[in-house]
Nucleic acid binder design. Structure first.
Lengths: 239, 239
DNA sequence: CGCTGGATTGAGGCCGATCAACTTCAGTGG
DNA sequence: CCACTGAAGTTGATCGGCCTCAATCCAGCG
């Protein structure tokens, strides 16, 4: 795991305005108190960032790339806990136990900023705005992620794709994007098999809601897709 | 919704050590800065505490009783988001959006403490310990709740029962307790039908893992139940 | 005592899993 | 550049777990 020296733009990072490493124009004031980023790390594809039982020491913010967190169950199944993309934070689920319960591996070449949690707590103490922000962030996490409450497989996949587009291209409302993960990963996240995910892609394509070309996804009818995700009964029936 | 004047003991509350209303022995020092509890509320069975789209203003801590949060989907299904018991906090999922996304109703006569969020944030500012605690609490919430990742219905129910016992009787390792909610509610939480939940209870009773008498549950083989919840393949097969 | 809503139990159907064959793709070395 | 290889993806046939629909039972309560 290499230590990265080059600075990159932090336009997507939630904490950019607090960060000591954020590149600023000369006109922009550097905050008097900044968050300590210990280092930036380059993680190659399939490299792991942390493992279960690793002591929880850092929060990570993704500059570029994508990761998944997962766990292997007693029966051998892999359960994917979540995917994390540029601008998102990773690691906070371990605050409670003090050690990680999941593995985190990168899905492609990835760069993360490492924030030591002890320092972070210290900064929190001095920064009401940061307090507010972290609470919002965790509250947000509490709300999403659970596609699993949705009933049918097709509904879950539709909701997943919509969320993915929004997270890969925030502020943009993208209608095409590249899947950062395999069908199997999607299945392990949505509690489906890779085969079922593949079948559903074919089906959504046949009903002209999306086009699939390998890892490329094109939304043809974003609104209908949304209605499908929302479970409108007649839409669900007709797709 | 009545305002409750009488003080009750706050032994289970996470925030008792910060709270202005906690009853203390004369020997115990009252903290110089305390959390503001605006009021205590008595909520009768089936009364609602908040509704979707209600503005988020308060955090609630349950003194006594139980609540569920739920939402009605486009297809009419009721999805239960979570159950909340004495000593637990409620409402933080709405921090992000600023308004509630779920309904909260009490499952039995319930008493909650109302903490205005604005005051809470203010206290947070002054109390590093409280900061740490709230982060831990939310991190904890992020970790649990998802029984939905478990594969089989029986596994999910077993995990649910174990968690329930632990939360209804913290520090005790209870082997018997009374279900605060209906079979249907359990089903709506675990993404099962009420019928399936009922069938599973019968089956767990037939295989002598538990005894069921109406709402009363007795654990006969807590360890086996745990292994079932963990998905040990041979246990799953034999129950 | 009958009423009512929750709980139980049964019969049949459907969605997604499993198992397996085949295709496509990406990476490697000749 | 192509041949080889292993992984990922697609597609089909069959199976099983949970849902649906429906009848019956039961406890609590006026």
């Amino acid at each position: 795991m290499a230590i990265l020296k080059t600075h990159v733009l932090c336009t997507r990072c939630t904490f950019a305005s607090f960060c000591s490493l954020t590149e600023r124009k000369k006109s922009q004031r550097v905050p008097t108190e900044t968050l300590t980023v210990k280092q930036r790390r380059l993680i190659k594809r399939n490299e792991t960032l942390f493992l279960p039982n690793n002591k929880f020491q850092n929060l990570y913010i993704i500059q570029k790339g994508a990761l998944k967190t997962y766990r292997v169950e007693a029966d051998g199944r892999e359960v994917v806990r979540g995917f994390y993309f540029a601008g998102e934070m990773l690691g906070y689920e371990a605050i409670y136990t003090g050690h990680h319960l999941f593995s985190a591996v990168s899905l492609s070449e990835t760069v993360v900023c490492e924030l030591p949690y002890a320092d972070f707590l210290e900064s929190l103490h001095k920064k009401p705005l940061l307090q507010k922000q972290i609470l919002q962030l965790m509250s947000q996490q509490l709300m999403m992620g659970s596609y699993l409450v949705l009933t049918t497989a097709k509904q879950r996949l539709a909701a997943f794709l919509i969320d993915l587009a929004a997270r890969l291209y925030p502020h943009e409302k993208a209608t095409e994007f590249t899947l950062p993960m395999s069908r199997q990963d999607i299945g392990n996240y949505l509690k489906l098999t890779g085969e079922t995910v593949s079948r559903l892609f074919s089906q959504l394509q046949k009903t002209k809601l999306i086009t699939v070309k390998q890892k490329k996804i094109y939304f043809l009818k974003p609104d209908t897709l949304k209605q499908l995700a929302d479970g409108l009964p007649d839409i669900v029936a007709s797709c």
